[in-house]
Design a protein around this nucleic acid. Structure first.
Lengths: 292, 292
DNA sequence: ACCGGATATGAAAAAAAGCAACATTATATC
DNA sequence: GATATAATGTTGCTTTTTTTCATATCCGGT
């Protein structure tokens, strides 16, 4: 159960639960911060009900007991939301929470990559990119397809022959024309996207080198030669966009930068040409990053 | 104290606290989910220390007691997801430099957004998204077009009628069919992309509301009603992909989350439907994030 | 109106958890 | 090696939570 469900249910019960439930739900909703720390006795007193009623209330909401209930409330609070607080009171605080939740989430996700990433594998991957005659990136689903496109975007600048496909048919067809000089990146957070799994299988049959960026225990991970672990945890907060995207971006940057350094100064030539090709479009501002 | 600080402190203590502290910190870090629900007795047993030591440990970490400690852990989990917090790897200098360069760049970019962001504007923008009959997002160039697509990806989930265009012709044509109920987001790091500037101008002529995510001093910024500042600094490190992308993602997440909360619980219905529509594709795993 | 059964609520006691005061042990310092 | 200080443990008490059992309330059928 996601934490947001609990708020919904509280809402519903505040409207049409039994007497005691109504009062409790109201008390909790009116001050979640208080409720997340109060003892049963306190809560019972405020709502004018008996203590066991509070425990039963929590159970009925799908929690193990009041501890679990408060645990979930704490999580709701960690991210916070308009509808959680009495409106006029806390505009600023709520804003701060939103900013904090996203920033912390991103920082966490990236910290994890930072801690867990095996640079030896990344270095090998980069070497394969350099060696490959043609690189393909397959991704599907919101996060993974962004990753695929982004990877193309990062690597083509280095002069790497790379193309991304987010369409399942294109992935399959492309896989079918792979050969020994091909390198296939397969990105899938779940590791269960059928088109990606099949494409990897086919590409490998034709001798392509295959690298996945996916859940290390997934079907997809087992299909390929190498796997860079990428796990998107079940977000407890549905309102918040998943932080996993930052992790994926990080991973891609690592690959791109390692590859760039491997190629060496000649990447600068590619970058220079890109800049020249843009200079007729935009004003010439040498400080600006290449291609917006 | 932000909630994630607690993890840092735990890390430090796991490395150089006293004996009991070390063991406790390790136990907690090795399974935060467990620690966030365990009783003192449990924790003490596992770490092989006495119960009051656990209480003292929590206090020393800046919490009121074990309750508060567990409360904070719950929040860490809510934000960071059910991530593991593995020991950071030791790596050689070159690897550390690459990882550090990217991580620091991203952290800086996001910190800048955090410092500069005006949540009042973001709230207004979100309100406009909710009110709009149709939302368009235009972006061009590597970073900005990713932003446009990502914005579509984040907002369509909430049931917002939104479409992204990264093609200049499509942008112009779309702008030409705007009306009063249209909302146009124009993303451009440079603020000089011709197609975007023209599209904003045209859309505005037809009564659309226009919001830019761009350099606040740019031509584009002056064309539109509102501007969320987004500046990509000239990266000195040519090998390194620009960190600006993290900042843009951050900005988009802020808008998406604020919008989601403005819409309220009914967004859950959209998300639920998306999940259902995917469940025939993938195995049914309710914990998985929606759409890879 | 009255009955039987289900449901909701409360009182009291048992169980569990958390905490403080004091005791002990380890460590550092001279 | 004595002493002071910090770190940790033991014990028992308090608070919190849960369970058990009793009571009240509601509701449809007679």
């Amino acid at each position: 159960m996601t934490t947001t469900d609990i708020i919904n249910r509280l809402r519903i019960w505040a409207a049409d639960g039994s007497n005691a439930e109504k009062r409790l739900a109201e008390i909790v909703l009116s001050d979640i911060e208080y409720a997340s720390k109060a003892s049963i006795a306190d809560l019972a007193l405020r709502a004018g009900v008996s203590e066991p009623t509070v425990t039963r209330f929590c159970r009925a909401l799908g929690c193990d007991g009041i501890r679990d209930f408060k645990f979930k409330l704490a999580q709701v609070l960690a991210i916070g939301g308009v509808y959680l607080f009495p409106e006029p009171l806390v505009r600023d605080e709520r804003d701060a929470r939103i900013v904090g939740a996203i920033a912390d989430g991103a920082a966490n996700a990236m910290q994890r990559v930072r801690d867990a990433i095996d640079m030896k594998t990344v270095n090998e991957v980069a070497q394969h990119v350099v060696d490959a005659g043609q690189v393909y990136v397959f991704g599907s689903g919101g996060v993974s397809s962004m990753g695929a496109v982004e990877m193309q975007n990062r690597l083509f600048r280095l002069g790497v022959p790379i193309v991304a496909h987010t369409d399942g048919q294109m992935q399959r067809m492309t896989a079918a024309v792979c050969d020994k000089r091909s390198l296939v990146f397969a990105i899938s957070a779940s590791g269960q996207a059928a088109s990606i799994i099949e494409s990897v299988r086919v590409a490998r049959q034709y001798g392509a080198r295959t690298i996945t960026i996916t859940h290390p225990e997934s079907v997809l991970a087992k299909e390929a030669e190498a796997c860079l672990p990428f796990v998107i945890p079940a977000d407890t907060q549905l309102y918040k966009p998943t932080s996993g995207r930052y992790a994926l971006l990080f991973l891609i940057d690592l690959i791109a930068m390692t590859t760039a350094e491997l190629i060496g100064p000649s990447v600068l030539e590619s970058l220079r040409r890109i800049r020249v090709s843009l200079s007729s479009l935009n004003t010439n501002d040498p400080g600006r990053p290449i291609g917006d």
